[in-house]
């Protein structure tokens, strides 16, 4: 399982993408805007996730 474990992190990616697409589709009706906002939101959520993980990892190595 330890060899597979790092791959599990990638399972966050489809979740983030689907959340972004569905949220954008619920807010907008024009397709170009839906896709544009979905990409933007995906990047934002992934950035926040990576930042939060980095901060938690930093503190985790200090204790």
């Amino acid at each position: 399982m330890s060899l597979l474990s790092p791959n599990l992190y990638w399972l966050a990616l489809p979740l983030v993408i689907v959340v972004s697409i569905v949220y954008s589709a619920s807010r907008h009706e024009a397709w170009p805007r839906i896709w544009r906002r979905a990409i933007r939101l995906s990047v934002l959520i992934m950035t926040l996730l990576v930042m939060a993980t980095a901060v938690l990892l930093f503190f985790n190595t200090q204790v």
């Binding site: 949220y23 589709a25 619920s26 807010r27 009706e29 805007r33």
Partner: peptide
């Protein structure tokens, strides 16, 4: 969210 979109429409128009 999708149910609310079906009920009330999107927040912003075309």
């Amino acid at each position: 969210l999708a149910i609310y979109d079906a009920f009330d429409g999107p927040a912003y128009s075309d």
